[in-house]
Amino acid sequence: MEDKAVKQQKRLLEQEHLLPYTIEAQNQSFHVMIYTKLGKISGVAVLNADKSLADRKVAEEVVLKLQRYNFYFEYLSKRSDVVKERDSIVAERIEQTQLILNDGDLFDDFMQPTVDKLSLALEVYKQQQHKMDIYQEDISLLNEKIKEQGQIQPEDWKSAEDLSVLFMSAAYAQTIYLEATRKNRQMLAKWVHDHQKQLPASKRKALLKLVALLSDTSAGLIFDQIISLLPLLEKGLLIDHDEDLPKRAQEFNKEYEALCRFYKPKLEKMVKLIRN
């Protein structure tokens, strides 16, 4: 039977959601009730096994652990809201159109370096997206496992850390290569527009198809949405933006892994929301 005190925590126009798993603290398992209003978290209540309100100190410990788990996949959650799986669709379409960029006789000496950099960025995008699709499936399986067993077990914390590091590393490499070749996409579109009458029909058709794909209303829009999340990827890290891209990616991997392994949430952000 649910304690009356728990019901009293719910306020006007709020929705309540009991997490489908418990969190351990002080050798006991605790339930967590999340209150939302207009789609945003408005309160948190930590409950004992009998659904009564837990002690405040215990509640704070549980909320810190919940914050830690949410931190692992904060970027993934935000990216899913913004991109809505269109990044995977774009990767498939790139696979079908990018070969034309490898035609060594097609572009002049001025344009070739621009094309080479763009071609590399598209290849990085495609490869990293493939990795992220796999990692995202693994993350979904982990969350399903936790839901089915009804608690986060010690090995689940390690799995969450590992998957977070893998996913974020792939996302960062993808993002910085896209950011570095924004102008390359524009230059390719202009070059094709200026030279299309001089190109063989089959190659002109292939290039126009690629340019259309990379336009601001298609893949280019998805790329810009991904780039817009770069501050979230670099949050809490000191990255030297003057380094070349491979070294910058390596630096991120090292710094983010250290942050992830030793991450300590700050209770100040949640203290006003705890209703115990």
Rank of each mutant, 00 (worst) to 15 (best):
D3K: 04
K10H: 01
R11P: 00
E14K: 03
T22L: 02
Q26H: 10
Q26D: 14
S29D: 11
H31D: 11
Y35C: 04
K37L: 02
L38P: 01
G43R: 03
A49R: 08
D50G: 10
K51A: 06
S77L: 06
D81V: 07
K84T: 12
R86L: 12
I94G: 08
Q96A: 14
L99W: 06
G104N: 12
D108R: 09
V115G: 01
D116V: 05
L118N: 11
S119R: 12
L120A: 14
L122G: 08
E123W: 10
Q129K: 03
K145E: 14
Q151A: 15
Q153H: 03
P154C: 00
P154E: 02
W157Y: 14
K158F: 08
K158N: 04
A160V: 11
L163D: 06
S164R: 05
L166G: 00
M168F: 04
M168S: 15
A170K: 10
Y172L: 06
Y172C: 07
I176R: 09
M187E: 15
V192K: 05
L207E: 10
K209N: 15
T217H: 06
A219M: 02
A219F: 10
G220H: 03
L221Y: 12
D224F: 07
D224S: 06
Q225N: 13
S228F: 14
G236W: 08
L237W: 06
I239R: 07
D240W: 03
E243V: 09
P246S: 06
N253H: 05
A258M: 01
L267M: 09
K272P: 01
K272T: 01
I274S: 07
